[in-house]
Every structure is written in C-alpha cells, then in structure tokens.
C-alpha cells in the first residue's frame, strides 16, 4: 500500500452532497498465480475499505477477488460538520493504511 490519492472538496455547504474519490496503489494479488518456481503466490487483496466522518462510519466496502489492482472507490456523503474524514484500507496481510483529510463546512 504505497500511494494513495484522495480527492474531496476542501469546502462545502452544510447539507450539500459531496463526492469523494479514492485511489489506492495495491497489487491485489489474486492467489491464483504461480511464481517462477511454481509455488503459489498467496492471495493479498484489500478486503476492507471504510470511511468515517465526524466519528461516524459513512461508507464501508468489503472487497472480494476479481477487483482490479489499484482499486478506485468513489462514494458520496452529506457535508454535516467541519471535521476530519478518516479513510482506512485493510489487506489480507493484515496491514491497515489510514489517511486523514479535513473538510470545512460552512
């Protein structure tokens, strides 16, 4: 989980629907491929993505095989308070990548 691109508006009006786009660099190893010695490469995909806003979970996605490498997830939520949005991705290796972005609601 090397790089993350998150796009959301810096400012929004209260009650406005905002679109949030996230792109994560991840190989999404299928578990079906063999290495050069013929040994199975273990599955390593992002299996969970969640976003909390103002302490409340606003979006959650469980990911399964057959989702492309570098998964792009876009969703929308309602701007309620000026606060932090916390994004987290968890993969089969058990690693969790967390990113935080601020939004100003007027």
């Amino acid at each position: 989980m090397a790089r993350v691109l998150i796009n959301l508006p810096e400012r929004a009006k209260r009650g406005e629907i905002i679109e949030i786009k996230t792109l994560l660099q991840h190989p999404m190893e299928t578990g079906y491929r063999l290495d050069s010695n013929g040994a199975k490469i273990p599955r390593d995909i992002v299996n969970l993505f969640a976003c909390t806003y103002n302490g409340e979970e606003v979006f959650r996605a469980e990911l399964f095989p057959a989702i492309a490498a570098n998964p792009f997830i876009a969703f929308s939520t309602i701007a309620t308070e000026s606060d932090e949005l916390v994004f987290s991705w968890t993969d089969d290796d058990g690693q969790t990548r967390t990113e935080t972005r601020k939004i100003i609601v007027e």
Partner: peptide, 12 residues
C-alpha cells in the same frame, strides 16, 4: 486526474 491510476506513479 483523480481516477487515473497512472497518477499514483506520478506522485511517487
């Protein structure tokens, strides 16, 4: 630019 996965490498 926010959906183009190539931008991950640009930022790298």
């Amino acid at each position: 630019g926010t959906a183009n996965p190539g931008m991950l490498w640009v930022s790298e």
